[in-house]
Write a protein that binds this DNA or RNA. Structure first.
Lengths: 188, 188
DNA sequence: CCTACCGATCGGTAGG
DNA sequence: CCTACCGATCGGTAGG
C-alpha cells in the first residue's frame, strides 16, 4: 500500500547492510532516494522506526516458516531439514533486510531491543525442541541441543553474507545443499 | 611494551563489539578508561587507527595458524580439521577483537579496506586449496570448494557470537566439537 | 516534498 | 593527561 514508505525501507535495508545502521545518516538515505532529509519525516517518525520495522518484519517471517514446519507430521530429522531450508528461504529472499535483522538489531533502543531478543529466544526454542525430539529418537547425535541449535542457526545466518544470487545455484539449491551439510553433520 | 595503548585497544574492542565501531564515540571510549577524549590522541593518531590495528592483528594470527597447518604432513581431512580448530582458537582467544575483525572491518577506509579484503581472500584461498586436495583424494564430497570454504569459515566465525566462556565447554572442547560437526558434514 | 533551521554530538587540534 | 575549543555533521522540527 504505502509505496513510498516501502521504497524508503527497501533503500534503507541496502544502506544499513552496506554501511551499518549507525554509519548511515538520514541524509545518505534521502540522497539515495533523491529527496531532502527532512522529507523523510513525512513518511516515518524516526530513524529507528525503519530499523524496527525491518527487524520485526523479518522476525515475523521466520516465525511463519517455523510454525508451518512444526505442524507437519514428519520425523524430527525431516522437520529439522524443513526448518533449515525454510529459514534459508527467508534469509535469501531479501538479503539486505535479513542482513539488517542479523547484524543491526543491537541498535534498537531499550523496549524494542527487549522485545526483539524475546522473539529471537522463542524462535531458537522451537529449534531446540525440534532437535531434542531428534536426539531422543536417536536420529541426532547426543550433543547439547542448545549448542546444536546455535550452530545451525548461526551457520545459516552466516550464509547471508556469502550467497551469491548471480552464481550457479538458485536459492532453493543453495538451501538444500546447506541443509544437507548441516544435517549430515549432526545425524547419528 | 606500550601498555596504555594496549589498554585502549582492549577496551575499544569490547565497545566496538557491543555497540559497533560507528556507534562508539571517542568520548565513550575515554570515559570507559577514565580519561578525557582529547587524551586518547597522545596514544593514537585517529579513531580508525584502533580499528586498523585490531583487524590486521587478527588477520596475522589467522595466517600464522593456517600456515602452521599447511606445512604438516597429514591427510587433507586431518589438516582441514587442524585448520578449523586453529581458526576457532584464534576466534575464542579474544572474542571481542575477533568480533571486530568479523563484523567491523567494513568501516576501514579505502586503502586499509583494500588491503584487508586482499588478506581475507588470500586466507580463504588457503582453505579452498586444502578442500580441493580433499575432494581430489575422495575424502571430501564433490561440492564446489569455494562453497565449502565459505560455509566452514562463516560457520566458525558465527560461533564468536554464541560461544559462552562460562559454559561447560572449554574453548578447546568447543573447537573440537565444532570441527567434528563440520567435517562429518562435508566428508564422503 | 522543500527551505531554513536547531541543539547535540562527533573526531580531532592547540597549547600547556 | 587536561582545558578549551573548532568545523562538520547528526537526527529531527517548524512552517509552508
Amino acid at each position: 500500500m504505502n509505496s513510498r514508505r516501502h521504497q524508503i525501507e527497501e533503500k534503507a535495508s541496502v544502506l544499513f547492510m552496506e554501511r551499518g545502521y549507525a554509519a548511515t545518516s538520514m541524509r545518505d538515505l534521502a540522497t539515495a532516494l533523491n529527496i531532502e532529509a527532512a522529507s523523510l519525516y513525512s513518511h516515518i517518525k524516526a530513524k529507528e522506526e525503519i530499523l524496527q520495522d525491518i527487524c520485526f518484519r523479518l522476525a515475523e517471517e521466520f516465525f511463519i516458516s517455523i510454525n508451518e514446519v512444526l505442524q507437519q507430521e514428519e520425523t524430527p530429522l525431516v522437520k529439522l531439514k524443513m526448518a533449515i531450508t525454510g529459514h534459508v528461504k527467508v534469509v535469501l529472499k531479501d538479503i539486505s533486510s535479513s542482513a539488517v535483522f542479523i547484524n543491526e538489531w543491537k541498535h534498537l533502543s531499550e523496549t524494542n531491543l527487549k522485545k526483539f531478543l524475546q522473539l529471537r529466544m522463542e524462535y531458537e526454542k522451537k529449534f531446540i525442541l525440534l532437535i531434542k525430539e531428534g536426539v531422543k529418537g536417536g536420529a541426532i547425535k547426543n550433543i547439547d541441543e542448545k549448542f546444536l541449535a546455535q550452530y545451525i542457526l548461526s551457520s545459516i545466518n552466516g550464509s547471508n553474507s556469502w550467497y551469491n544470487p548471480l552464481g550457479k545455484m538458485t536459492s532453493e539449491e543453495f538451501g538444500n545443499q546447506l541443509a544437507d551439510l548441516l544435517i549430515q553433520g549432526i545425524r547419528k
